[in-house]
Structure formats: structure tokens, C-alpha cells
């Protein structure tokens, strides 16, 4: 396994919101990628946006402007 580093994780209420986030980030060249939701956050099915902690403001601002609802913002070792 790769060495764990601190990551920013954004979660969403719905898969639709997660896919909208990926589309938005591609359009705006914002950093990150989709990963399975880490168990520290949820045991259920789902996907989350993973980026670096310093990307927090840019990602949250872009989501807010686009009307994408983020359910949680976390910083965890992944």
C-alpha cells in the first residue's frame, strides 16, 4: 500500500452531487479525484472527492458557487 498522507475528503448526500463535483472540477481544472468513501467517514456505499488539504477553500468555494451540496469536509490520513 502507498504511504499514508493527510488528505482532504469531501462527501456528498447523493451520487448525483458527487458526479456534479467531478464534472465541475474537470471544467475548472480543480485538483482531486473520486475515491471510495473511507471507512472513517462511512461504512456504506459511496464515493468521495479526495484532494490535498490546501485545496479546501478552492473546492468548497467552487461547489458553493455551483450549488453543489457537500455533506462533509474531512482531513484524514489516507
Amino acid at each position: 500500500m502507498r504511504e499514508k498522507t493527510l488528505k482532504l475528503i469531501l462527501t456528498f448526500h447523493t451520487t448525483t452531487a458527487a458526479m456534479a463535483m467531478e464534472s465541475l472540477c474537470r471544467d475548472l481544472s480543480l485538483p482531486g479525484r473520486m475515491i471510495p468513501v473511507p471507512r472513517e467517514i462511512s461504512a456504506g456505499c459511496g464515493m468521495a472527492w479526495c484532494a490535498q488539504p490546501e485545496d479546501r477553500d478552492a473546492l468548497c468555494d467552487a461547489a458553493g458557487t455551483a450549488g453543489i451540496r457537500i455533506s462533509g469536509v474531512f482531513e484524514i490520513m489516507l
Binding site: M1, R2, I35, P36, P38, E40
Partner: peptide, 14 residues
């Protein structure tokens, strides 16, 4: 005790 999501992601990415 690895998170199954982390293992699946590692299998995919690497």
C-alpha cells in the same frame, strides 16, 4: 485491517 475502499482504490490506481 486495511479499509476495503483503500485496497480497492490501490488495486485500481496502481
Amino acid at each position: 485491517d486495511f479499509d476495503s475502499g483503500a485496497v480497492s482504490d490501490e488495486l485500481s490506481v496502481s
